[in-house]
Structures are given as C-alpha cells and as structure tokens.
Computed example of a mutant assay.
Amino acid sequence: MSEERRVHLSRSAPDAYKTLDAFSKTVGRIAGEAGIDDRLKELVQIHASQLNGCAFCVRVHVDRAVKGGLDADLIAQLPTWRESGVFTDRERAALELAEAFTFIHDGGVADEVYDHVGGILSEDEYVALSWILVSINAFNRIAIAGRYPVPPRHAAPA
C-alpha cells in the first residue's frame, strides 16, 4: 500500500490523537516539576526516536532541541553516547533508561539498569523520564505506522 493511501491515525481518529497530545503535555508538566529540563527531555526523545527508526519524530525533536540551544555536535553524538564524553552522568543515565524503555520487549528494564539509573536520578526524575519515554514511544509508533513523510529541507543542488 502506498504512503498516500496509508491510514493517518491522527487524522482518522482526532479525538484519540488529541488525548495522546494532552497526555504528552501532562507528562511535560510533570517532567518540569521533577526538574527535567528541556535539554534532557529532548535528548531522550531524539534517542528513543532514533532507536525506533522514526525519522518524523527525530526531525520534530531535533528542531526543538536546536531551538532550545543544543548544538549539532551534541545531537550527532547521541548514537554514540556511551563512547562520547559530551554527556553528563545524569544525561547518560537518562539515555540508558531511554534504551531500556524503547527495547522494553527485551526483558523489561533490567535490574542493573534500574539500580544504576536510580543511583543517579531521583525517584521523581526517574518517574518523569519514564513517562516521557512512554509518550515518545507511542508517538513513534503512530508516525512509523502512518509513514509520516520527512521531506528534504532544501532542494538539492542541480
């Protein structure tokens, strides 16, 4: 089935999509109350979207990250965060949690991950990041299932 004929879930069931969007806004408020800044929030959402292969959500969250002051080098380091020295211990714990939530089907959040992340993040931060990851994984699935397009930003040179 072509992309043009694929069901677009947000348009086909707008009430459900609006509810998910409202959920996402609630999660964002909880994250702010827990001390999760926009930088950390965008880093985990970009990384989860990369892991899921959701080009649409990567684009959305990279744009938000850049608007929020993150630079291209930092964003480019996300796929290699374990080898990179540009992330704080707190960011590294959040990225590890992002991987655990994204690959939850591989045995859940392992005790080692839970203990390691819990030794760095507060319980409120862990809870807030967990909800952010539930939310972005849901959005990734909607965009991937609908094959939401990600066109080039500029026409390629002739």
Rank of each mutant, 00 (worst) to 15 (best):
Q77R: 14
A76F: 06
L95Q: 02
R90W: 04
A31Y: 00
A13E: 10
K41F: 00
R82F: 01
D37N: 11
L40S: 04
D89T: 13
G28E: 02
A13V: 13
L43Q: 00
D38P: 03
D15W: 10
R59T: 11
K25Y: 05
R11Q: 15
I36G: 00
A16K: 10
V58G: 09
V66W: 01
L9I: 13
R64Q: 15
V44A: 03
V58A: 08
E83I: 07
E33W: 01
D73I: 12
F23P: 09
K18C: 06
L20E: 04
R82D: 04
R39L: 01
F23C: 15
D73Y: 14
G69S: 09
P14F: 04
F87K: 05
I75D: 00
L97A: 02
E33D: 15
H8C: 09
A72E: 14
P79I: 10
I30V: 13
L20A: 08
C54M: 10
G69Q: 05
V60K: 09
T26Q: 13
V60C: 04
L78D: 06
R39C: 01
A55E: 03
L51N: 12
R11V: 11
K41C: 00
T19M: 07
E42Y: 13
A34S: 06
G68H: 06
E96R: 10
S84I: 04
R90M: 10
K67L: 12
Q45G: 13
L51S: 11
W81N: 07
I36K: 00
D73Q: 13
Q45T: 15
F87P: 01
D38M: 07
D37V: 06
E83Q: 13
R82P: 01
A16L: 14
A55D: 09
L70M: 09
